[in-house]
Design a protein around this nucleic acid. Structure first.
Length: 563
RNA sequence: GCGCUCGUAGCUCAACUGGAUAGAGUACUUGGCUUCGGACCAAGGGGUUGCAGGUUCAAAUCCUGCCGGGCGCACCA
């Protein structure tokens, strides 16, 4: 890696055991900096004096001066100015050669990691909360892949809970659902929302729902048949969403397929003493670990959700030979996952288990919940954003055919939705403001796409040469050096974001790269420059476009050539 | 009650996990289309990082105590 290599060269040449580098707040100060506080302490020296000494040593080191044009001590900081020629050559070469693999590394050592996300419920709506989950899960999955892990993305769909019976209960009451021309899978979600409202104060209805559920669990009868049919609609609907969002799972698990194995597990776990009877229910008593009590089987003998989760976990471990298993699930289930992981530990599983949390999505109006019905579904959100982008795109491209306008507007819609979900830290609640999200300026997906499209537009007018045939030393503008350093940093950003499962680090990096690129665009003319310089500048923007595209890919966004 | 979490510019968020003058976007004010796509760029004002202590050469970041919001704590997922 370009910058990591430079850091190692400094460490070796100056004989530093450990050194933590940073990037100066102001590029005037240098390109790479080393704070000397720690080092000075262990050597019983003043940091400023040590910085001076190290600067002298660095300047006398041929090895260092091959790569740096200057080394300066500023107070307790040792600042390095990377040689622009070395940088330009190395960056254009590396990005050009590695292309769509630029930014990838092998740190993961091919460890097998399963990551579970999306986790919808059949017969329920797919709403903006799910969108945060799927966007985040997909990005973490791609990040781990880029960091050299062998990633197995999976989804787990709950198709067998009481929510299913509620939906079916309502579905049979209201014939308008069946005559509707809307997508049946989508309708089921709406139907569920109505059902849960109606059932709030309807004890008789709840009885009926309970009977329906029992019939489904018995896997026979009319309600079971209806379950089979409606379940397919939901699954098809989810598939269409995944396709639209360009998300692929290696496998999708269903609760109905693991629940029996779970019930069998419970028996064995009782014998092992992991589970026991309490107040008529079967529980895992985790008080001694400070994790309270987790009920597993209701006192009426029916299964609760941990049953399926335990079976699912053991199936994952047995079938896939995993080193690590990641669950991308809402932070509100933190305690539950601590309990689940503890139980799996007691069962003897030693794989590394990670509950990757994120906070929920609200609307300016209030909370999202399928049970209260105050939800914005994926469909509704998409329509609203899409409408805006369709109008905007049509206005700018009167010569485009409707299909093309739709294609571009849909891309912007998906990009926008994902970007909004990914740009804030996972520990922050997102208040999804549609008008703010669907803007064209500021820290938005459209701004990034526009920056990319404009670079591609230049490249169409005068296609860049292969990186080997340009003279990179002609890139002498300060703006060019800034961009080159930013391009080099991409490799480190991927590592850092991967370690922290941080999607926002990628979005922020890309935003800043586009800002630099836009500055450059305005400040420096490319096509009108003298031939040699023009070739070098074209090669530079080609590299920028490549890195943007690579970053977009990690975010699950498809780069637009024109918009 | 116990536990987790968040609190940074009017608003939405950053801050490389303890380092240089706390940065962006938006909003507001102003300037730039003889421009490689103005869905852009430039400039300006805007901060006691919830409060009070402590640790440290150095704190938005770590510790303690308050204040305020959110979430979770046995048969919902």
């Amino acid at each position: 890696m370009i910058l990591a290599d430079l850091k190692n060269k400094i460490k070796a040449a100056l004989n530093l055991e450990s050194a933590i580098f940073a990037y100066p707040t102001d590029s005037e100060l240098g390109d790479l900096s080393l704070a000397c506080f720690e080092l000075a302490k262990s050597r019983h020296e003043s940091p400023a004096k040590l910085a001076e000494e190290l600067a002298d040593a660095a300047r006398n080191s041929q090895e260092i001066m091959n790569y740096f044009q200057a080394v300066k001590a500023v107070g307790p900081y040792l600042n390095f100015f990377i040689s622009p020629f070395f940088l330009a050559d190395n960056v254009l070469m590396t990005v050009g050669k590695e292309a769509e693999k630029y930014g990838f590394n092998t740190l993961g050592g091919s460890k097998r990691v399963m990551i579970e996300y999306s986790n919808g419920n059949t017969h329920k709506e797919y709403h903006v909360g799910h969108l945060r989950n799927i966007s985040y899960g997909d990005t973490v999955s791609r990040l781990l892949h880029a960091n050299g892990y062998e990633v197995i993305p999976v989804s787990y769909i709950n198709d067998f809970g009481i929510h299913v019976a509620k939906t079916i209960w309502r579905w049979k009451q209201d014939s308008s659902y069946q005559s509707s021309t809307e997508d049946k899978g989508y309708l089921l979600g709406k139907c569920y929302a109505v059902a849960s409202q109606l059932l709030k104060d309807d004890p008789a209805g709840k009885e009926e729902v309970s009977d329906i559920m029992k019939e489904i669990e018995s896997r026979s009868g009319d309600n079971y048949k209806l379950w089979t049919e409606t379940r397919e609609w939901s699954i098809k609907y989810f598939d269409s969403i995944y396709q639209e969002l360009h998300i692929k799972f290696a496998h999708i698990f269903y609760e109905s397929e693991v629940i029996d194995a779970g019930l069998a597990l419970v028996e064995g776990m009782k014998k092992q003493g992991i589970l026991r009877l309490s107040e008529g229910a079967i529980i895992a008593d985790l008080e001694k670990y400070g994790l309270g009590v987790l009920p597993v089987i209701r006192s009426d003998g029916t299964a609760l959700y941990p049953v399926a989760d335990l079976a699912l976990a053991s199936e994952k471990f047995q079938k896939y030979n995993l080193d690590e298993s990641i669950y991308v699930v809402d932070v509100r289930q933190s305690l539950y996952f601590e309990q689940l992981f503890k139980i799996l530990g007691l069962m003897g599983y030693r794989q590394s288990l990670v509950h990757l949390t994120y906070d929920f999505v609200t609307l300016p109006g209030g909370m999202m919940s399928s049970r209260t019905g105050n939800v914005v579904t994926y469909q509704e959100l998409k329509e609203q954003v899409l409408t805006k982008f369709l109008a905007e795109t049509a206005q700018r491209h009167s010569d485009w055919k409707p299909d093309r306008i739709h294609e571009v507007a849909l891309n912007l819609t998906i990009s926008t939705i994902k970007f909004e979900m990914l740009k804030v830290g996972a520990d922050k609640i997102i208040t999804f403001n549609i008008d703010e999200a669907a803007r064209f300026d500021g820290y938005t997906a459209c701004y990034l796409q526009y920056g990319y499209a404009r670079l591609k537009s230049i490249m169409r007018k005068d296609p860049p040469d292969d990186h080997l045939s340009v003279d990179a030393t002609l890139l002498r503008e300060p703006a060019e050096k800034k961009i080159l350093i930013a391009l080099a940093r991409y490799q480190e950003i991927v590592v850092s974001a991967g370690e922290k499962y941080s999607s926002s680090e990628i979005t922020k990096y890309l935003f800043e790269l586009v800002q630099l690129s836009n500055d450059y665009y305005h400040e420096i003319n490319i096509l009108k420059a003298e031939s040699g310089i023009k070739r070098a500048r074209l090669a530079l923007i080609k590299a920028v476009a490549q890195v943007l595209k690579n970053g977009f890919t990690i975010l699950g966004m498809e780069a637009l050539e024109e918009m």
